[in-house]
């Protein structure tokens, strides 16, 4: 248990140094169509998705006159429910939006996180986000998916497409689902005034289920940071 404690704090300390673009690359490692997109395209897409998420956060605050995820959900009359859905294999579900108006925040990962926090000393726990904050972060992210559906004809995360194949003049394009995830994180970050990427919750919440699995997620993010993909990306953009 002690080694896990040290590991979690160390992991979070390291991950707080990771920039949003590197987190975007991490998200792309989970994308089903990742092999169809070049590194340059990915770079461009990550940046535009972050901009899109931030812009929609400003836009929705302006439109609704509310600046909290709960307030915005209320404005759009969304049903925000606590759900006891659970882990599937190695996949831990934290929250989900089901059209047209249901957002489910899963209680199990937050409870597990609460238990992890309870096992830490006060100083160690102070470094980590409070369990109560997490549901707003999750809600913020899912709100973005609601907005994606609402603005699907214009929002970048839905209009950006890649060509999968063509045959006899027929072309099959696909949008890229990870762009919605990256933008959703930028949206939630801005809405919740977070100093870190909400992607951090992938490690934090997964830790409650499987510390070793959380370490493997941590390692893949750190590897991306070490490769400097995020930094390179930012330089290329400026």
């Amino acid at each position: 248990m002690n080694s896990n404690r040290i590991s979690l704090n160390q992991m979070i300390t390291d991950l707080l140094q990771i920039d949003d673009v590197s987190w975007g690359y991490y998200a792309f490692t989970r994308e089903l169509l990742r092999d169809r997109i070049s590194d340059n395209q990915k770079r461009e897409m990550i940046l535009r998705s972050i901009q899109c998420g931030e812009a929609y956060a400003d836009r929705v605050i302006q439109e609704t006159g509310r600046d909290t995820p709960r307030g915005i959900a209320e404005y759009f009359q969304l049903r925000v429910e606590s759900s006891n859905l659970t882990m599937t294999g190695k996949r831990a579900l934290f929250a989900q939006y089901t059209p047209p108006d249901l957002i489910e925040i899963l209680s199990e990962p937050i409870e597990k996180y609460r238990a992890v926090l309870a096992g830490l000393s006060q100083e160690e726990a102070a470094l980590l986000p409070k369990a109560e904050e997490l549901s707003d972060i999750l809600l913020g992210h899912e709100l973005f998916h609601f907005l994606e559906d609402r603005h699907e004809n214009e929002i970048y995360t839905r209009t950006e497409k890649i060509l999968l194949w063509r045959i006899f003049g027929f072309r099959n394009y696909s949008s890229i689902s990870v762009l919605g995830e990256i933008a959703g994180m930028a949206f939630s970050k801005k809405l919740n005034h977070l100093p870190y990427s909400p992607f951090l919750l992938d490690v934090l919440l997964y830790f409650g289920y499987n510390p070793e699995g959380a370490k493997s997620i941590y390692q893949s993010v750190i590897d991306i940071g070490v490769e400097g993909l995020g930094e390179k990306c930012l330089k290329a953009n400026h």
Partner: peptide
């Protein structure tokens, strides 16, 4: 009937 949902989920690396 069940609709396609958008989920925030994490999985350990394979």
């Amino acid at each position: 009937r069940k609709k396609v949902s958008h989920a925030w989920a994490a999985s350990a690396n394979t």
